[in-house]
Design a protein around this nucleic acid. Structure first.
Lengths: 334, 334
DNA sequence: CTGTTAGCGCCTTCAA
DNA sequence: TTGAAGGCGCTAACAG
């Protein structure tokens, strides 16, 4: 009962021409009689004919699509990067497909395999781990790809990332000036970008040996929850504290909860975030944070990938973006 | 110089078997000798062989992917719906591809065509317009699809949407109780969902004839900007005002600006939003808003689509979700 | 358990 | 300007 899909042959026979001729109007070839073209177009219209992209691609047409794998949809950082990428590539006629690995390496590998399998023209990946198997797989494919939010271990891999080590350092220098009695670090999944932030932070931080550290806090919900714990265990209500939180989403969650409890930010507790997502301007206490240059990351990744596709991936552009301290209200140098 | 991709034939000849045998290990067929399988697997591994999905699909394999087209990436409502959908379908082994129409109908049509062209198993579309050409195209295809955030004109189209008219009514009833001297409505693109909210709101609102209305405000940046204008033109600083803003993102932007200017929310200006995105709990003044039941929308859309794919799209489930008033701080009944 | 034979729908020479 | 033929990489009967 399933109605058969109309194919190029159907169109051809109805028009009384060969498949080749129909194919020519599909690819908008110039060498075709105007009337033939008109007629074929009309028939296509009549049947709402949509050529089978799989077949086209199999037969050699470029797909004109790039795939991007991000770690999570709920993280504004990735969404903003993706949005920027979409803007750029669509100008060149490409379409972007977003996939989410949900921070699962197995899942990421599956998605990468899928993208390779569907022969997209290029891939942008924010890998769960810097030595993820996905990267090896990608390398063995001949599809141009670009890593974001990570600095790969191997050579000959294109990437764009912010200098997270430097970002951590910036935060530390700010902390040193604030010089609060209590200093706490809150980080997310053990990801290279995070590790580098931690290192950069610790290395430049005064009294680093006293630093308290909470890990695996990654969403604003989790931030909201950990805040209560912090208050009790580390007496945030009594000891002037500085928080460095390596993710704006989390920072916003924490601040929200602190305010509810009646702890003032930045007076009692000052908070420095990381990323500078758009939202950090719009949250309850605008965030003092380290900017990753989100728009730059997206734009550069897209442009370079497009370029690599043009050069059939023989180059490996590398970009390390300089982070920047953005002073707003959640932490100030009184 | 471009290294040729390894195909099933390469694997087959290297293993000294036929393509069919290799294909069998690909599909994990039981009727295959264990040693053959092992051997073939090893060779695949050696070459990092990834089967061509285009070819597989052309030859009849289901793609196991669904496509979703949303209006914009920067809108948390859509992202949250998409995230929910991804959760659900991935449990069934499907992969989701997200595409963004950027509120452009032409672009939407192109993307729909692309999805049909690539023969995905199902499509979820948040159409720019309720009588978009995309919908007609989708109908003429034999791919199961589900509309979200809209109530289609024609019958026999599956959809899930919140009852926006009712949502507007809820807001109006709340406004009537607040009974502020000045009442202002702020809406986004002229989309059916918005129109319904407006209608529902106006119909139940006391003193609706005095209602002021600003249109085409759709992002929090735009909200942030319009706030200054509002203050000046409508003397928000002097006249107690109630704002109904049909989009939480915008509402958050507006509140942020109002606070900066020194206008208190909800005392001087009370704000009712729409959507209940997660963020509305975390913004500077937690939002009183109309909940669309975002998670429900995503879950239902995904589940029903999966079901339609199973039944080869012969059913047309329709869901109208009851919106709900969520009382937080940005507007209260004193 | 395995090989052979046909396509799937389209594009691309090569001739006409 | 058009048509015929071959092939892209894989799956699906149908024989053995």
């Amino acid at each position: 009962m399933k109605k058969k899909r109309v194919t190029i042959s159907d169109i051809a026979s109805e028009a009384g021409v060969s498949k080749a001729t129909v194919s020519r109007v599909l690819s908008d070839s110039p060498k075709i009689k105007f009337e033939s073209k008109e007629k074929i177009l009309k028939i296509m219209e009549k049947y709402s004919y949509v050529p089978n992209h799989m077949a086209q691609s199999l037969a050699g047409s470029p797909r004109m699509t790039i795939g991007i794998i991000i770690d999570e949809l709920a993280n504004f950082f990735f969404i903003e990067v993706a949005d920027e990428i979409d803007q750029v590539i669509s100008h060149s006629g490409y379409t972007m497909q977003i996939l989410s690995s949900r921070w699962e390496e197995e899942n990421e590998l599956k998605l990468v395999r899928q993208l390779i399998s569907s022969r997209v023209d290029g891939i942008i990946l924010a890998p769960v781990s810097e030595d993820s198997r996905s990267i090896a797989l990608l390398k063995s494919s001949d599809i141009p790809f670009m890593l974001i939010n990570v600095i790969p271990m191997q050579k000959k891999i294109a990437y764009v990332s912010s200098d997270n080590h430097q970002g951590g350092k910036l935060a530390a220098e700010f902390f040193n000036k604030m010089n609060r009695p209590s200093q706490i670090l809150i980080t997310g999944f053990p990801h290279q970008s995070i590790t580098n932030r931690i290192q950069g932070f610790r290395e430049s931080l005064n009294r680093a040996e006293e630093l308290l550290h909470y890990e695996n806090i990654s969403t604003y919900e989790q931030g909201y929850e950990i805040a209560s714990v912090l208050v009790i265990k580390n007496r945030l209500d009594q000891i002037k504290t500085a928080l460095f939180i390596t993710n704006d989403n989390v920072a916003i969650g924490i601040i929200t909860r602190l305010l509810e409890i009646g702890i003032s930010v930045p007076d009692q507790v000052s908070v420095v975030g990381f990323d500078d997502i758009k939202l950090s301007k719009f949250c309850r206490i605008p965030l003092t944070t380290i900017s990753q240059g989100i728009k730059d990351i997206g734009k550069i990744a897209a442009l370079e990938l497009l370029d690599m596709i043009g050069n059939s991936g023989s180059t490996f552009p590398k970009h390390l973006i300089e982070p920047q301290m953005i002073l707003r209200q959640s932490a100030v140098l009184s």
